[in-house]
Write a protein that binds this DNA or RNA. Structure first.
Length: 267
DNA sequence: CGTGGCTCCTGGCGGC
DNA sequence: TGCCGCCAGGAGCCAC
């Protein structure tokens, strides 16, 4: 599930495989994923150009074709990038295929088609158009605190709202709340400054650790909820059991014994 | 303004 | 063994 760490890994993958190579041709295999550009136009925009740089904001990946022309990828739930030799064995679920002049190709694959492909003049323009919040790795504590204080709903919903903070999805939101011992239903504006500071630090640490480990869950610390995400499973921290509930429409895993609702007077 | 519910899509899995 | 229905998950959209 591509959340911020996965998209950061895709960015590095694109940078290490596909930068500064002339694009011979491109083909759109499924145009329902195109957001603001037609298949013909996208193919024409890509052909003959090179990816010059990459940028990431939240769960969005931007690839520069020209200073005022960027390809924008969103990976939905099952999106992936695959760089491969030749185009004989095109990967399953390829939605956009980009052929380079070195005989290699880059495929944007997406089994469930929740991903989106678009074109924009500038990443910043796209971010403003979509009204995205600050990137979860870039946001500072002041902005984080203000954002949390303004949100009256459950803290889990706040963390998932890409307009407030961009990059966290269902799994990493649960992880951050678990590691900070916050109940996912707690109102975010009811959290003390001390708790918010801890949550802020944990979000950064969790995302950075995940990136360092290539977003490979099998390499994550055993103390994380992510690797113990089984209903009724043992909490890695206390004798309690992992439970599930729905928060903000999402299945939420948490430990009811170490993630308590905050008391009226803080904490 | 905020939120809950529905929708898109597909494969995997539990139940009968 | 087969089939049905449910679920996962990001995010836009609509109704309240």
């Amino acid at each position: 599930m591509p959340e911020l760490p996965e998209v950061e890994i895709y960015k590095r993958y694109l940078e290490s495989t596909s930068l500064n190579k002339r694009i011979e041709s491109a083909s759109v295999e499924r145009n329902q994923m195109l957001f603001n550009v037609g298949a013909d136009k996208l193919e024409r925009l890509l052909a003959g150009r090179k990816f010059q740089s990459c940028w990431r904001h939240g769960k969005y990946l931007f690839a520069e074709l020209r200073p005022d022309l960027w390809l924008v990828l969103h990976f939905g739930m099952t999106g992936n990038l695959i760089y491969f030799k030749g185009d004989s064995e095109k990967p399953h679920y390829t939605r956009l295929l980009i052929r380079f002049n070195n005989g290699h190709s880059l495929a944007f694959t997406d089994q469930r088609k929740f991903g989106k492909i678009s074109i924009n003049k500038q990443p910043q323009e796209f971010i403003e158009e979509r009204n995205l919040g600050p990137d979860a790795l870039q946001i500072d504590f002041r902005a984080f605190k203000t954002m949390a204080a303004r949100s009256r709903g459950a803290v889990k919903g706040t963390l998932l709202d890409q307009h407030r903070i961009a990059g966290l999805g269902n799994l990493y939101a649960d992880e951050a709340l678990f590691q900070t011992r916050i109940h996912p239903q707690a109102a975010s504006c009811a959290l003390s400054e001390q708790t918010l500071r801890l949550l802020f630090k944990n979000i950064k640490r969790i995302l950075q650790t995940a990136i360092k480990r290539n977003a490979d869950y099998t390499e994550f610390p055993k103390s994380w909820l992510l690797v113990n995400r089984v209903k009724g499973g043992k909490c890695p921290r206390c004798p309690g059991r992992i439970a599930t509930t729905k928060v903000a429409g999402r299945t939420t895993y948490f430990c009811p014994s170490c993630q308590k609702m905050p008391q009226r007077n803080g904490q």
